[in-house]
Computed example of a mutant assay.
Amino acid sequence: MSNADVEAGGPAGREATTGIKPPPGRYNPSGNGPNAVAPAPPPFYYYDQAAAQERHHRTWVVPLVVIANVAMFVVVMYYNNCPANGGRRDCVGRSFLRRLSFQPLRENPVLGPSAATLRKYGALDWYGVVHGNQAWRLETSTWLHAGLIHLAANMISLLIIGIRLEQQFGFWKVGLVYLVSGFGGSVLSVLFISRNGITVGASGALFGLLGAMLSELITNWTIYSNRCAAMVNLIIIAAINLALGILPRVDNFAHIGGFATGFLLGFVLLIQPQFGWSEQVSSAKSKYNAFQIILLTLSVALLIAGFAAGLVSVFKGVDGNAHCSWCHYLTCVPTSSWKCDK
């Protein structure tokens, strides 16, 4: 290895710092020839620089989703119109927010509209989905939020998780994972939701992105330069967020359903050519290895079977709790400090 290679950031230097040789055709320090590339953007935390360079997409879907969620919240609050709802004087922020003011804290502690308003504008409602021919609630509920605090937490998480994924894989893949995962979370949620309750929020879709990040790491294992750190970080983040779902008033079934859906979709949509493959360099090496193909095939089969079984069960009015006596502990564990609604 020459000092010039290290100082110039050439192949030898890259191998020394990342422990991985750059794939053929992905790096050309001279800037000339058919494989010349523009200066690379800052590398992502776990990808080697050459791999990150090929995955830098413009980000617009994630910010657009955030704007849409915020706009939807404002519209719902406008029609909620707390002051006109029985002439209440205890609406939060009534003096300056007027009809956009929040319901009393005793009714909605996260600063938002009433349950009746959420139900009217698309919240996930078991009776509406099963007996009211309102299957659209399985998706519309993911665009509603119970309150300002709920909205802020989800949108900040979406920006942190979603922008990174969209930069690497593009808008349509990340957008599809987000939408389908939200739907998958709603399907599992409606099987276990209280028959008189409602649920809203983008958490299922967010957990889908988190699940996709984990499966993307697994299926694209060969192009990561710091595999163990990436795996440990993602597992810890997923475990902490799922653990928070055992608190009351949190729909952990939507989290679990969204995570499982996103995890499977990641094997299908976020698959990348294995390390060493290049379109510019003729090679006998296949674009995807057998491990990736097997995971993709199994994931497609499980997604089809899972959605088919889930939707059939939903529209038959199956009560998941009647078939699983302990499943309610997945979404709420009673303690001396709080109780759980079964």
Rank of each mutant, 00 (worst) to 15 (best):
F192L: 13
T18G: 07
T142R: 13
A50V: 11
Y329A: 02
P29N: 10
M77A: 00
I237T: 09
G276H: 05
D90Q: 10
S282L: 06
G317L: 13
V65P: 04
L265C: 05
A308H: 12
K342N: 08
A116P: 01
C82D: 01
A153F: 14
G10F: 05
C82P: 01
Y329S: 01
G170I: 07
H57P: 03
C327T: 01
R14C: 06
I293T: 15
P63H: 03
F192G: 05
E279A: 13
V92M: 10
L179K: 12
A123C: 03
F44R: 09
V37S: 12
P39I: 03
K316F: 11
V333E: 00
G306D: 14
G147H: 13
A322W: 04
G320F: 11
L151Y: 07
V333F: 11
V174Y: 08
F169N: 11
T17N: 01
G257K: 03
A202P: 06
P248D: 05
G320W: 11
W277Q: 04
T59Q: 13
L165D: 08
D5L: 07
V312A: 14
G310T: 12
A135F: 15
R137A: 12
F263L: 14
A40F: 10
W126D: 00
I20Q: 10
H56S: 11
A68R: 06
G162W: 14
K173F: 09
F192A: 09
N321W: 10
T199K: 07
V312N: 13
G310H: 14
V268R: 04
S114N: 04
V92S: 08
K339T: 13
G310R: 13
S225C: 00
A260M: 08
A16E: 14
K287I: 14
V75Q: 00
S101Q: 06
W172R: 08
W221S: 03
G197R: 07
H328G: 00
S336M: 07
V312T: 14
F253S: 05
M231Y: 09
Y178A: 04
S337M: 04
G87P: 04
L151Q: 12
F291V: 07
S299H: 09
R119L: 11
G19Q: 09
Y329P: 02
M77W: 00
P43N: 10
Q272T: 02
F183R: 07
A4P: 00
M1N: 09
R26G: 05
L188P: 06
V250C: 06
S282W: 03
S225M: 00
A116M: 06
I246W: 06
G86H: 06
L247P: 02
V76I: 14
L311M: 14
P104V: 08
G204S: 12
F169Y: 15
I163M: 13
T335L: 10
S278H: 08
I20C: 10
T59V: 15
S283Q: 15
G87Y: 02
S186G: 14
G33H: 09
